[in-house]
């Protein structure tokens, strides 16, 4: 029990490292020195010290948004195994996991609409439009994983050791990883879909919804976003190497290395690609969804 608690606590503390690592990779590609890896920790500390400003037209929904979404991410992180066993696990917890992510998105969108700003409404509309394509993909991938691992609990689904017994599922796992990687880029508003580095640009999605939040609220949102990235990256890290290590120290070391690899590859994708045009984004997500369906067809056979 203590080990599980430690692994969740370390994960929650380490989450803000990922955006720093991505930025460092991008800077290295551009030949710059870049902000320190710990930059997000400094930002969070600064924001937590400030006071929040609330517009008089907003209601309690605007204040509840960041709190509810951060709480959902925190609870969702209990279901994810970070190199060992997950903190909580029951049959069917994948549905809870997916809906917690959905709840967080729902409240972020509501808070954006609550400000009454047309700009934020536009961002909210885009966020919901793209999630229509991203969420079915996640569910299809969960169906395939449940099938090949024979379990409905997230911590067993992402480490399907049966794959190694059956050579014909290795290609399947590659399809799943590719599809989940695209969804991860879209869900965390990384570059081919959204540009996390810009403000006040007409094509952005996530940044536009949080323009009116300030102080601790913004800190919650930034931390929540890094936690969401960490959750999806850890699912990818487990799927890349679906074997449980012999003891927890080895497991954590391996997990840390894999998370770093996935994060750096996100940074490489961001450095190598330009953001897609808005009308092309659905096609990318549909392609990811069709690849997931292909995986499902092979997996259910």
């Amino acid at each position: 029990m203590l080990m599980r608690f430690v692994s969740v606590a370390v994960a929650l503390l380490a989450a803000p490292l990922l955006p720093g690592l991505i930025n460092k990779t991008k800077s290295a590609f551009a030949g710059r020195k870049g902000p320190p890896v710990l930059q997000l920790y400094f930002d969070l500390a600064k924001l937590l010290k400030k006071g929040a400003v609330y517009s008089p037209v907003t209601t309690w929904i605007f204040r509840a948004g960041p709190v509810v979404s951060l709480a959902s991410y925190l609870i969702a992180s209990l279901f994810v195994p970070f190199g060992g066993d997950s903190f909580l696990s029951f049959s069917g917890d994948v549905i809870a996991f997916a809906y917690l992510l959905g709840l967080a998105r729902f409240f972020t969108v509501l808070a954006a609409l609550d400000t009454g700003s047309s700009f934020e409404g536009m961002g909210a509309s885009r966020e919901v439009t793209f999630s229509i394509l991203a969420e079915p993909t996640i569910f299809i991938l969960f169906i395939v994983l449940a099938r090949i691992s024979g379990s409905l609990s997230l911590s067993h689904m992402v480490t399907p050791e049966q794959v190694l017994m059956n050579p014909s599922t290795v290609g399947l796992l590659l399809l799943i990883v590719f599809s989940l990687f695209v969804v991860c880029l879209a869900e965390n508003s990384r570059i081919p879909v959204d540009d996390p580095a810009t403000h006040l640009e007409l094509t952005m999605i996530h940044e536009v919804m949080v323009l009116d939040h300030s102080g601790p609220d913004l800190a919650f949102i930034l931390y929540g976003a890094s936690l969401k990235l960490f959750l999806m990256v850890s699912l990818l890290a487990h799927l890349l190497f679906p074997i449980r290590a012999a003891n927890s120290a080895q497991g954590w070391l391996l997990f840390g290395i894999l998370v770093a690899i996935v994060t750096i590859s996100i940074g490489i994708v961001e450095s190598a690609m330009a953001r897609l045009r808005m009308v092309r984004i659905p096609r990318l997500l549909i392609a990811a969804c069709m690849i997931a369906i292909f995986a499902m067809i092979i997996g259910l056979r």
Partner: peptide, 20 residues
């Protein structure tokens, strides 16, 4: 078996790529 399956998956992915 691995290689065969990977090659066949590659074939289907190329098809999807051309379609999209």
């Amino acid at each position: 078996e691995h290689v065969t399956q990977l090659l066949l998956i590659l074939v289907i992915l190329a098809n999807l790529f051309v379609l999209g």
